[in-house]
Amino acid sequence: MYAQMVKAEGAKSREEMTVEERAFQDRIDRGEKIEPKEWMPEGYRKTLIRQIGQHAHSEIVGQLPEGNWITRAPTLERKAILLAKVQDEAGHGLYLYSAAETLGVSRDELLELLHNGKMKYSSIFNYPTLNWADIGTVGWLVDGAAIMNQVQLQKTSYGPYSRAMIRICKEESFHQRQGYDILLKMCLQGTPEQKAMAQDAMNRFWYPALMMFGPSDKDSVHSAQSMQWKIKINTNDELRQKFVDQTVPQAEYLGLTIPDPNLKWNEEKGGYDFSEPDWDEFFDVIAGNGPCNAERMEARVTAWEDGAWFREGLMAHAKKQDARRAAARIAAE
């Protein structure tokens, strides 16, 4: 989701496992949480760093499309709400970087990997936010899809990741509701032009939102090991189905049409049938060719480089204060 296409190795059978690996798998099967510094297979550690890192990067890059509208929000109240939401995203990124750091990678290292393109973030943030209805739609669909993924990850086997997810989920529901609230206003009380804006946003964000769950299970080679380790709890397709089933009635209430002629209730499976997103587009965006990839990375790298003097300045100040305190202590002795 916020971590699509995380590379992992194939799952091992019990016979292939070493004694340590088997004991580790038993702990996971019993539902025990794995904590930092405890023994873990190198593959578990590496996959988690990739997944949590990608998730953290997504939170941080995800601030950009919404930040675009802070100065353009239609009322002071909407502006304050959006500001609070974007601030939350920064917080979520920080919780996740901290969780990743417990696995022995530093935050600066992770940021460097993001900036030099070696680590990814969610494909969804490479789409532009063109009108105010996009902010409503992002909150409703994008945060909605994120919640769908994050709720199951609260049960993930790695303690610090699970605790970060619990915190994030508590805060995330505000994000989805504020988005839906924007669309309620536009769709139910707005002018025909405003309603058209909402439909336009829906048309552009529906398939990119479905892509957030990652490729179909049959094409997702990395899932098996991650599910065995409980780094992932549900499959991509299960989550996508749940998301569609939850979203359709919400769209109906708004009077918005989901841009999928094949969308149909399937009584037998108790869920909707729907069209797959264009996976070629997905892989293209992941590869760096989405509408906003270059812009997003440039904004990130610029922010990092422009902030260097400030980070260094504060560090120099802290060192000077330390030295001064040490000198005062010696003088007093």
Binding site: L94, Y95, S98, E101, R107, A164, R311, L314, H317, A318
Partner: peptide, 11 residues
């Protein structure tokens, strides 16, 4: 509750 980076205790 978690951890964070800062240059000194006050920050």
């Amino acid at each position: 509750v978690g951890s964070l980076h800062a240059p000194d205790a006050e920050m």
